[in-house]
Simulated assay, not measured.
Amino acid sequence: MPESKSRRRPTKGPAMTPSSKAQKPNAPWFLPVMVTLMLLGLFWIITYYISDGKFPIPDIKNWNIGIGFGIALSGFMMTTRWRS
Rank of each mutant, 00 (worst) to 15 (best):
R9S: 10
P10Q: 09
P10E: 09
T11Q: 10
T11G: 01
T11A: 10
K12E: 12
K12V: 07
G13R: 07
G13F: 10
P14E: 14
A15E: 15
M16T: 15
M16N: 03
M16S: 11
T17L: 09
T17Y: 04
T17D: 02
P18H: 03
S19Y: 05
S19F: 06
S19L: 08
S20H: 07
S20W: 00
S20F: 03
K21A: 08
K21D: 03
A22Y: 05
A22C: 02
A22H: 06
Q23Y: 03
Q23G: 01
K24F: 03
K24I: 11
K24L: 11
K24V: 13
K24Y: 02
P25K: 15
N26F: 09
N26S: 04
N26L: 08
N26Y: 04
N26I: 12
A27M: 05
A27I: 12
P28L: 05
P28N: 08
P28M: 02
W29S: 09
W29A: 07
F30H: 13
F30V: 07
F30K: 06
L31C: 00
L31I: 12
L31S: 04
P32L: 04
P32E: 05
P32S: 02
P32G: 02
V33H: 00
V33A: 05
V33F: 01
V33Y: 00
V33R: 04
M34S: 12
M34E: 14
V35K: 04
V35M: 09
V35L: 15
T36H: 01
T36I: 15
L37E: 11
L37R: 04
L37Y: 07
L37I: 06
M38A: 10
M38K: 12
L39N: 06
L39P: 01
L39E: 07
L40A: 15
L40M: 13
G41P: 08
L42Q: 05
W44N: 05
W44P: 02
W44T: 09
W44V: 08
I45F: 03
I46G: 00
I46M: 06
I46Q: 02
I46H: 00
T47S: 05
T47E: 03
T47C: 00
T47M: 07
Y48N: 02
Y49H: 07
Y49F: 14
I50K: 01
S51L: 06
S51I: 11
S51K: 10
D52V: 05
D52G: 08
D52S: 11
K54T: 15
K54H: 12
K54Q: 15
K54G: 02
K54V: 14
F55W: 14
F55D: 02
P56N: 03
I57M: 02
I57Y: 04
I57A: 00
I57K: 01
I57Q: 01
P58N: 11
P58Y: 11
P58Q: 11
P58V: 10
P58D: 13
D59P: 04
I60A: 02
I60S: 01
K61A: 13
K61Q: 11
N62P: 01
N62S: 13
N64W: 12
N64T: 14
